[in-house]
């Protein structure tokens, strides 16, 4: 039951993008096509889950016992940077098409604050355990995927819309994101 609550909270109530503002860069950057946004969501799911697994273990069994927990930010970002590099190498080999599509944004997963943010937030869960932390990461990446794919679908339609000159580009995208976020606000109080 506890896990169902975590899932619903992470996907709908406290959506990582739309209500916690983590991972806004890829949210605005790779959302012009649904197909790329699906690829990006997959990459984030993979990196976020492994990153949280590794950083949680590292924090609990290395940093805390040695009293080095103030090095949290540095160690976490290093682990994430190496993981991203690994995903990049694997993707280049396995799926060159997807690698082409994600282009510049794959190395930027390193600076995707959603990954580091979830790794840090997972440390503060109530009655935390490794399983719960990993589940939290998966739930949040589903939330990220949901927001990104919904947003990309709207943006595809938006290309055909007749807009005032000043609203074209960034402003209308932000406005759409705002309305999407408003819709998600309706889930408040669900859990």
């Amino acid at each position: 039951m506890e896990y169902v609550v975590i899932l619903i909270a992470a996907v709908f109530v406290n959506n990582i993008v739309l209500s916690q503002f983590l991972g806004i860069c890829p949210f605005l950057g790779v959302s012009s096509k649904v197909s790329t946004s699906v690829g990006m969501s997959g990459a984030v799911l993979f990196v976020m889950t492994i990153a949280t697994l590794v950083t949680y273990l590292l924090y609990q069994f290395v940093l805390v016992p040695t009293g080095l927990d103030y090095l949290r930010t540095i160690t976490f970002i290093l682990v994430i940077a190496s993981l991203v590099q690994m995903v990049e190498i694997i993707l280049k080999k396995v799926s060159p098409a997807l690698y082409q599509a994600l282009g510049v944004f794959l190395p930027l997963i390193t600076t995707n604050c959603a990954v580091l943010g979830v790794a840090i937030l997972a440390l503060g869960l109530e009655n935390g355990s490794l399983l719960k932390a990993v589940f939290f990461a998966i739930a949040n990446s589903i939330g990220f995927a949901l927001a990104l794919i919904l947003f990309a679908s709207i943006r595809e339609q938006l290309e055909l819309a007749d807009l005032p000159e000043g609203m074209k580009g960034v402003p209308i995208n932000l406005l759409v994101a705002g309305l999407l976020s408003l819709a998600f606000l309706g889930f408040t109080g669900l859990v």
Binding site: L18, S19, Q20, F21, G166, M167, V170, P171, I172, N173, L174, L175, A177, G178, L179, S181, L182, L185
Partner: peptide
Amino acid sequence: ILFILPPGAFIALAYLSVVFNK
């Protein structure tokens, strides 16, 4: 109240960037 809630951040920034561009 909307403007201090999360959606308000997106909406306020959207209009501010219109003004900034102008």
